[in-house]
């Protein structure tokens, strides 16, 4: 029983991972890519680790999977934030069809 539940959760995680990576290839500029990839891959990997927690019977693997999932959930948004800021400060422009860029306007003044 627990094996089937774990497998379903892992399947959801793998599908989210895959669409995140497709977004990484398909979206036009770095900020959109960062959005798609960070959200989908973070939750997808957390789902895979959760499935590993449910499937693996042994206690050490389960606790390690839980710790790893918590760690990824905490650090991945921070890394995305640092990357977006670094990209903007290093001079990467937004996509040409973007609507508004308040950050650029405020940096000029």
């Amino acid at each position: 029983m627990s094996e089937i539940v774990g497998m379903v959760i892992i399947a959801i995680g793998v599908v989210f991972d895959f669409f995140g990576c497709v977004g990484l290839v398909r979206f036009p500029d770095i900020y959109n890519r960062l959005q798609a990839a960070t959200k989908c891959v973070t939750l997808g990997t957390c789902f895979i680790l959760l499935g590993a927690l449910i499937t693996c019977g042994s206690a050490p693997t389960a606790t390690k999977a839980a710790l790893c999932a918590i760690f990824i959930l905490l650090t991945s948004p921070t890394a995305a934030h640092a990357l977006a800021r670094g990209a903007h400060l290093s001079g990467v422009k937004l996509w040409e069809k973007s609507v508004v860029d308040k950050y650029e306007d405020d940096k000029k003044h």
Partner: peptide
Amino acid sequence: PSAPDRTVAIDILGTVVVGLCALLAI
């Protein structure tokens, strides 16, 4: 095309490999 794009992809690759390791453990 630019260095930040590559950096984003490296970050995402790291997270995917963590999932891959969990699958290998199973």
